[in-house]
């Protein structure tokens, strides 16, 4: 299955600082829940482990992240990722285009468009939850990022916390909330 995810968020930090972090795979991985940086393989390629739990399925992906292009001037980065489940239960690939723009007043806007292709168990059983899981991952990611950037990087190397797999219960609850939230929105809009 293919999932397309587009996200935009603002962060209270200058563009140069955000760009510096976002182009450093090691630092960025530390902000992604369930991700663990493994090693720099040279040639802009990095090996990363990622643990994701969707419903009853816990998948560990061993992946390779490579920076396809980096536009220093306009602050646009293109990243390719591919990973296979360490137990042979499937795999995923990702193409991401990220850009950072200065919003003045010391904040930066980060925009990310990604296409994720998933094969295997996760695609079969998680299809209805993947969007909610991604949202949840994203929220945790931006929170970590904000903490790192706005909190002067004091948690930058706190790998333990960040590397914990996203808890299944937390995702399930968040997903349920997401579904109910949308239902409530629909009900509200119907009333109006």
């Amino acid at each position: 299955m293919k999932v397309e995810i587009s996200k935009t968020f603002s962060i209270r930090a200058p563009v140069s600082k955000v760009w510096g972090l976002m182009t450093d795979v090691k630092k960025v991985s530390s902000c992604i829940p369930g991700a663990q940086y493994e090693q720099d393989m040279g040639d802009n390629k990095h090996s990363v482990m990622m643990v994701v739990k969707v419903g009853p399925i816990k998948s560990s992906y061993r992946g390779e992240v490579s920076i396809r292009s980096m536009d220093q001037e306009n602050h646009i980065i293109e990243i390719d990722g591919k990973g296979t489940d360490t137990k042979g239960k499937g795999g995923a690939t990702m193409e991401l285009v990220g850009s950072i723009t200065d919003k003045g007043d010391g904040t930066s806007e980060v925009k990310g468009d990604s296409t994720i292709t998933i094969q295997g168990m996760l695609a079969q059983f998680g299809s209805r939850m993947i969007e909610d899981v991604s949202n949840q991952l994203f929220l945790q990611f931006t929170a970590s990022l904000a903490e790192v950037l706005e909190g002067n990087g004091k948690n930058l190397v706190n790998d333990n916390q960040a590397a914990d797999a996203l808890s299944g219960v937390a995702v399930a609850l968040a997903a349920i909330k997401g579904v109910f939230g949308r239902l409530m929105d629909k009900l509200k809009s119907k009333k109006e």
Binding site: M1, K2, T117, I118, Q119, G120, A123, Q124, F125, S127
Partner: peptide, 11 residues
Amino acid sequence: YDDEGNITGGS
């Protein structure tokens, strides 16, 4: 099936 051959009606 989706384009990658994942079964989407398998339970």
